[in-house]
Computed example of a mutant assay.
Amino acid sequence: MTTSHLALDGTFRALADPTRLAVVEALVRGPASVSDLARPFEMAMPSFLQHLKVLEDSGLVATRKVGRVRTCTLRTEPLAAAGHWLDAQRLLWTQRLDQLDTLLLQLKDQEESR
Rank of each mutant, 00 (worst) to 15 (best):
Asp9Tyr: 14
Asp17Val: 01
Thr2Pro: 02
Phe48Pro: 02
Glu56Val: 07
Phe12Thr: 13
Gln89Ala: 13
Gln95Gly: 14
Val61Gly: 02
Leu92His: 06
Asp9Glu: 09
Val54Cys: 12
Glu56Pro: 01
Asp57Met: 05
Leu8Trp: 00
Thr2Trp: 03
Asp17Trp: 04
Gly10Cys: 03
Ala7Lys: 08
Ser4Ala: 08
Gln95Ile: 06
Gln99Arg: 15
Val28Tyr: 05
Met1Lys: 05
Ser113Lys: 11
Glu111Gly: 09
Gln95Asp: 14
Thr11Arg: 00
His5Ala: 08
Met1Thr: 08
Glu42His: 15
Arg13Tyr: 09
Ala81Asn: 09
Lys53Arg: 12
Arg20Asn: 04
Thr63Leu: 03
Leu74Glu: 02
Arg39Gln: 15
His5Ser: 15
Thr3Asp: 11
Thr71Phe: 01
Ala82Asn: 01
Ser33Glu: 08
Arg70Glu: 15
Gly10His: 13
Glu111Thr: 12
Leu60Ser: 03
Ala38Ser: 11
Leu97Asp: 15
Leu92Gly: 06
Thr76Leu: 08
Phe41Cys: 02
Thr102Ile: 07
His5Ile: 11
Thr63Val: 07
Val34Gln: 01
Ala7Asp: 04
Thr2Glu: 03
Leu8Asn: 04
Gly30Gln: 03
Met45Tyr: 04
Pro46Gly: 05
Val24Thr: 00
Gln110Trp: 10
Leu6Asn: 13
Leu92Ile: 10
Ser4Cys: 12
Val34Lys: 02
Leu74Pro: 00
Leu86Cys: 12
Gln106Val: 11
Ala44Thr: 09
Gly30Met: 02
Arg20Val: 02
Leu103Asn: 10
Arg13Thr: 11
Asp98Thr: 13
Thr2Asp: 11
Leu100Val: 14
Gly59Ile: 02
Asp87Pro: 01
Pro31Trp: 00
Asp109Trp: 04
Leu86Phe: 08
Gln50His: 07
Leu105Trp: 08
Arg13Leu: 06
